[in-house]
Computed example of a mutant assay.
Amino acid sequence: MTLLRMVMALPDPRFSTPRVLGVDDFAIRRGQTYSTYSTVLTSVEDQRVVDVLPTREAGPLAAWLIRHPDVEIICRDRAGAYAEGARRGAPDALQIADRIHLWQGLGRAVETCVAAHRDCLRDPSPSGMLPKATRLTSGRPQDDQAPVGRRAARRKAAHTLTHELFAQGHSRRAIARHLG
Rank of each mutant, 00 (worst) to 15 (best):
P54R: 04
A158N: 11
A90F: 03
S138C: 09
T134H: 14
R5Q: 08
L161W: 13
S16F: 01
S127M: 09
Y37G: 05
R177F: 00
D24V: 03
A176L: 08
H178F: 12
T33V: 04
V49G: 02
S138F: 06
D123M: 09
R29S: 08
L106D: 00
T162G: 03
R155Q: 15
H117E: 12
I28H: 10
T17W: 01
Q47S: 15
G80T: 10
T39L: 06
V148K: 12
M8G: 01
L61A: 02
V44P: 02
M1E: 15
I100R: 04
I175F: 07
Y37L: 10
L65Y: 03
D123A: 12
E57H: 10
M8N: 14
R173G: 09
I175M: 07
V40Y: 04
L130S: 05
Q168R: 15
L165D: 09
P60Q: 06
A157L: 15
L41Y: 02
A133G: 01
P91V: 04
I74L: 01
S171C: 09
V50R: 03
E111W: 03
R108A: 13
T162F: 11
D92W: 02
T134V: 13
A109V: 11
P54A: 05
G22Y: 00
R67N: 07
D144A: 15
E84T: 08
Q145S: 14
T42F: 01
L121H: 02
G22K: 00
A158I: 04
L4S: 15
P131R: 13
T160H: 12
P141S: 12
A97H: 02
T162K: 07
S125Y: 05
A167K: 11
T134Y: 14
L121M: 12
P69D: 00
R140V: 13
R177S: 04
S138W: 08
T134W: 15
H163A: 13
D70L: 11
V110W: 10
Y82T: 05
G128V: 07
T112D: 12
P126E: 13
L61T: 05
I96W: 04
M1S: 14
